[in-house]
Computed example of a mutant assay.
Amino acid sequence: MEAQVFQALLVFVYTDTWPEVEQEDEPAMSQHLLVAADRYGLERLKLMCEDKLISHIDSNSVATLVSLAHTSSVPK
């Protein structure tokens, strides 16, 4: 896990809020946080990540999101 992702995960754990992320970094951070949330059983964070990712679905991100869904326990 990258340090930036771990820091964002800690922000969520301690504040129960979405960490501040640069707008252009939000899709990538959401993907990384979704994997971390799945690993550590943080259901609320998983839902927040899914909500963020839904707004960034386009033809360039579909393959990545499908792959992510197959590797995590996110409902398909």
Rank of each mutant, 00 (worst) to 15 (best):
F6V: 03
F12G: 06
S61I: 02
K52N: 06
E24R: 10
D51Y: 12
R39I: 11
W18I: 03
A36Q: 05
V21L: 05
Q31T: 06
T64N: 12
G41I: 01
K46L: 04
E22W: 10
E26I: 09
L65D: 04
S67L: 08
C49P: 04
Q23F: 14
C49W: 00
L45F: 00
E2H: 12
I54K: 14
W18R: 05
S30Y: 02
H32A: 11
K52E: 06
I57K: 02
I54W: 15
V66R: 10
D38P: 03
V13A: 10
Q23M: 15
T71A: 13
R39G: 07
A3H: 13
A63M: 11
R39P: 05
E20Y: 12
V11T: 11
M1D: 15
N60Q: 14
A37S: 07
Q7D: 15
M29P: 02
S30E: 06
A36T: 06
P75D: 13
V62Y: 00
A28H: 12
L68H: 00
M48C: 07
E50W: 09
H32F: 11
A36M: 07
T17W: 13
T71V: 14
A69Y: 11
N60S: 15
H70G: 13
P19A: 00
V21I: 11
S73G: 09
L42T: 01
A28I: 13
T64V: 12
R44W: 08
E24G: 08
L68K: 00
L45H: 01
D38Y: 03
S72L: 06
Y14P: 08
L33K: 06
L42K: 03
M29G: 02
Y40L: 06
Q23P: 14
S67V: 09
N60H: 14
E2R: 14
L53W: 00
L33G: 05
S72G: 09
D25Q: 08
S59C: 12
P27Q: 03
M1A: 15
Y14G: 10
T71N: 15
F6S: 08
E50Q: 13
